[in-house]
């Protein structure tokens, strides 16, 4: 057996200690929020300075929030999938906390993606909704988020459903390439990709820059909210453990 005391613990191993995680995350959190606020302010300003589109007029400004929300809806599920691997493969104790904390945030961004898209579609497409492959698959993603939220709150004891939640997250990951390629594989009302494509973005820089700055801002905001929610979940589990301890003492007395 190798002498483990001589090896330096990996960064993930250090983060496995909830107390250490709370210490480190507590210092990082205000910076994340501050940075997100700056980027979003810059993105908003750039967005409103951007010209009106020759076809869409000022509704093009909805793109600066709708597209980042779509990206984030998928990114949140990807973060949860990485955490799910942490639960199932490495039994990392914070991994389940990460999934439970990310789900409502991802659901909120998915809802906003659908809402802003609908409000953009009414004037531009003439309809609030259509059951094409892109919109349907994102709606399915939203329903999966709700299912995951329900599952992770089903048990009284937090963390009981860790494995089930992790499996649901990994199975649901198959929806993400479907969402991405839906506009290529099927005949959709939703237009094909304009940014993440093989030949590069087709957007004019006047629109691309506000979009990217807003995307960066919302991404930073997601990580700030996620970190905050993870810290809260760790505290909740401590409260639960202490309350159970109190109940046992009351019974023993």
């Amino acid at each position: 057996m190798s002498d483990l005391s001589l090896s330096k613990p990996s960064r993930f191993a250090i983060l496995a200690n909830p107390t250490r995680f709370l210490e480190l995350s507590g210092r990082l959190q205000p910076w994340l929020y501050g940075f997100a606020a700056l980027l979003l302010a810059a993105g908003l300003v750039l967005g409103f300075l951007a010209p009106e589109d020759y076809q869409q007029g000022r509704t093009v400004r909805i793109m600066f929030i709708h597209v980042p929300f779509a990206w984030l809806a998928m990114m949140a599920w990807t973060v949860m999938s990485a955490s799910a691997l942490g639960t199932l493969v490495w039994r990392h104790p914070i991994a389940d906390v990460s999934i439970k904390a990310a789900a409502p945030i991802g659901a909120a961004f998915t809802f906003l993606c659908l809402f802003t898209g609908s409000v953009w579609g009414r004037p531009m497409w003439g309809t609030w909704w259509v059951w094409d492959a892109r919109l349907t698959s994102v709606f399915v993603l939203f329903i999966m988020y709700l299912g995951l939220i329900a599952l992770s709150r089903a048990e009284e004891e937090p963390g009981r459903n860790a494995r089930a939640a992790a499996v649901l997250v990994l199975v649901g990951f198959v929806n993400l390439p479907i969402i991405k390629f839906s506009v290529d594989w099927w005949n959709t009302l939703h237009q094909p990709a304009s940014v993440l494509r093989a030949d590069g973005p087709t957007l004019d820089p006047a629109f691309l820059w506000p979009l990217l700055v807003c995307a960066a801002g919302f991404t930073t905001l997601f990580f700030a909210l996620h970190l905050n929610a993870m810290r809260t979940e760790i505290l909740r589990r401590r409260v639960f453990a202490l309350q159970r301890l109190a109940a046992r003492r009351a019974e023993a007395a």
Binding site: G57, R58, H66, A108, T232
Partner: peptide, 28 residues
């Protein structure tokens, strides 16, 4: 006429994100 649509999109965004932020902070 499209101003209402843009306002609704940004308005809903502000409401949902502020509510999410408030919920997380109050829970903590």
């Amino acid at each position: 006429d499209y101003f209402a649509f843009v306002a609704a999109a940004y308005g809903a965004t502000a409401i949902v994100l502020l509510a999410l932020f408030a919920w997380i902070r109050l829970d903590a």
